[in-house]
Amino acid sequence: MNRFDYVRAETLGAAIGAEGALLAGGTNLLDLMKIGVATPDRLIDISRLPLDRIEQSGGGLRIGAMVRNAEIARDPQVLARYPALAEALLSGASAQLRNAATTGGNVMQATRCSYFQDPLSPCNRREPGSGCGALGGATRNHAVLGWTEGCIAVHPSDMCVALAAYDAVVEITGPGGLREVAMEEFHPLPDADGAGKPPLMPGEIITHIRLPDPGALARNARYVKLRERTSFAFAIVSAAAALAIEDGVITEARLALGGVAARPWRCRKAEEALKGQPASAESFARAAELATEGARPSGDNAAKTPLAQRIALRALERAAAGTPERLPALPASVFAGDDNG
């Protein structure tokens, strides 16, 4: 790999505005450096910043950017009130990686589009203006929503899908002060020329993820993930669903899809359609259909749209059935549900 400087930021102040690539858990950045996709001149190690706590915040939770994925997944508050987040986290990567990967790093991880990861392929995301190497290539895993000819990559995170469903907010600090962005809009969608503008300005750092009070959504929330390997594999498609149900009627619904777009895909229309409807198979089927509105294949991935609808349906059904007392042994697995007898 290229030669680079390494500095450790001891305080948040030292990290803000610093020039270089931010290094936290390193589970993605170091891989990218080894394969020549990321070639930073300088690494700023922020892993020791005091952003490693999960705090109560206005009825919700505030998760520091340096909290490890595994810690969130075993946090009693998260398990009790945001179970779909815990399930999403436990369905991702491996135990070793979850122990190392941070909240902020999970949000900032790069797409696993193989053309992005191959420095010899054109990629607008890696090298603006070079074109999209994936278009016309091996595209089974690529986007069906929100893509352009400039970029058809998907965001790989499971955590972010659940966070988007929970209306999470990303707290960002930079030279210009604080700003907040909704999780569901944090990752830019591609524009005609490429991947869109980067989510963080130079010198900015994610400090926290804030989760609002889930209220009645706490009891009926699940994450479901389709993949060929039962662990240590990214989603073909996934869905997070959370429902508030009173007397059999849905009073609030949340639905987000993973593996379909360059960001976790919040399905607002489907949510609207569920509100006030009975928690029934018909309601869920209708919502699942709406979830992928506007979807179109970007290559050899026409099957993703029906699969996304079906994973949405499954997540809604499982959410309606109630969050289990304990997370299943195969978190988020298609085979993990009580619905499978």
Binding site: R112, S114, Y115, D118, L120, S121, G133, G136, G137, A138, R140, E228, R229, T230, S231, F232, A233, L330
Partner: peptide, 30 residues
Amino acid sequence: ALQEEAVHDRRSGRLTNADLAGYHVPVNAD
């Protein structure tokens, strides 16, 4: 039967999944 498959980009002739993250072999959970 269910996982292993090297996928080429037919234009470049390069593999698109030349690592253990992209080329799946079974894990214990399988």
